[in-house]
Design a protein around this nucleic acid. Sequence first.
DNA 1: GCAGAATATTGCGTGCACGCAAGATTGCGT
DNA 2: ACGCAATCTTGCGTGCACGCAATATTCTGC
Lengths: 247, 247
Amino acid sequence: MTGEPSLRERKKRATREALRAAALRLALERGPENVRVEEIAEAAGVSPRTYNNYFSSREQAIVAGIVEDRAARVAAAVAAHPAEGSLGEAVVDAVVALYGDPGDHPRGALLMIANSSALRACYVETATTIEGALAGAIVERCRGVDRLTARVLAASVAAAAKVALRQWLRAASEVPSMPGFVVPSGSLPELVRAALVPLVPALDAAATGAHDAAATGAHAATNRHDTTSVPGAAGTRPGTRAGATEP
Amino acid sequence: MTGEPSLRERKKRATREALRAAALRLALERGPENVRVEEIAEAAGVSPRTYNNYFSSREQAIVAGIVEDRAARVAAAVAAHPAEGSLGEAVVDAVVALYGDPGDHPRGALLMIANSSALRACYVETATTIEGALAGAIVERCRGVDRLTARVLAASVAAAAKVALRQWLRAASEVPSMPGFVVPSGSLPELVRAALVPLVPALDAAATGAHDAAATGAHAATNRHDTTSVPGAAGTRPGTRAGATEP
DNA sequence: GCAGAATATTGCGTGCACGCAAGATTGCGT
DNA sequence: ACGCAATCTTGCGTGCACGCAATATTCTGC
């Protein structure tokens, strides 16, 4: 499925990986605030300018390793879920699994992220990565669902994940003594699941509404609203991500 | 209700307003890319450094006028909605009204925003402004709903609004001839409503689940999913604090 | 292989966001 | 009215993101 790895493609992957690794290593060694992009670039053997061709901010490279292939994984997890289950189950389980499996995280990485305000923001923001793939997986699983609806649901799921992440990271940041030194505690997967549960009705309703009357489950959430009466819904592209705005 | 506007407060409002107005005026006159923060600051009679004490990016000042008091307005709209209606209705109507009423927009403002990639991103991002207020309005309307659930629903609504905004802005940007000159067309309120509809089941389910069995509306969307029957779904971690905006 | 198209890398210049530490301004208690 | 505390403004310095154009590298048809 994944086509040929051309020379160019491999090189790009390699430099990206090198930058990512160097950024994480340096950040862990010297603290995230004491590492400059020039140093990351040098450690990876490219020019500083090239760095910004791969990552649009200093923090992205550091965080990139933790969240490398979220999009692909969540899509696969949704697709892999038994077709008998409801859409809500599938999506919730898939996303929970995403945050349940601690990839190859160097143990101090999450701790470092939790302690840096900039890294926290960047890390939370990466939850949006899954939007496109998740929307695709939803339409793939239940054909007939509106493209717009799928995108909305995917965006909602990502937003819920962001809320969970924020909550998790903040939970420990409010420790009275020792401000500025955060130790994330509690079960992140459970928190993510709890955050996603409120969206299950919406997911199931969309699924049953699209799948036609005889839906998977006997419990069709009655969806009175006709989701197809929309003027213009065109193809979509991921678009560019950029700066952080202050809540 | 609102206390006395102290001198300091008035001055801050004034300079903020001056910056906002100057930014919008200059951007409309000379095009958004041909305005530097130094000029905005000068036009407002403050130092360039002060500008960044009020707005964290160049685009924010330009967009600020269009979306000034979204948070307060949406909260008021939700609260003002007849209590007999469902939560979903209330929230959808409130948000649709937000984007339906074209405040005092100078007519070319939205057009300019639609044509500038940076401004588009910033404008779309402002949808998150409503999150906090909306979450507060939800818990205010239906007591007993989880703080976390309210935050998730609010975030989902904001995310849906963002999807709608993106779609709306993109709809015209894909005009074959004349790329780079966008004319947003179609009914934004309708698009927003369409984007929010898929979330109605989730909103109503949360409301009925929290409010106890006897739901508000006669036509309660039947939803069997008990939002509280999930391990750790409801009042899970003892750290669930709703509250202030995040720095 | 080779020429040319396509694409990636790099250096340079510019504007910008923001931490920091004075200096100016306002708020408040006495 | 006075002085102290709180807060805002400002200048300065630093690092950073990114457009642009030149250069190097890879791809493609022949």
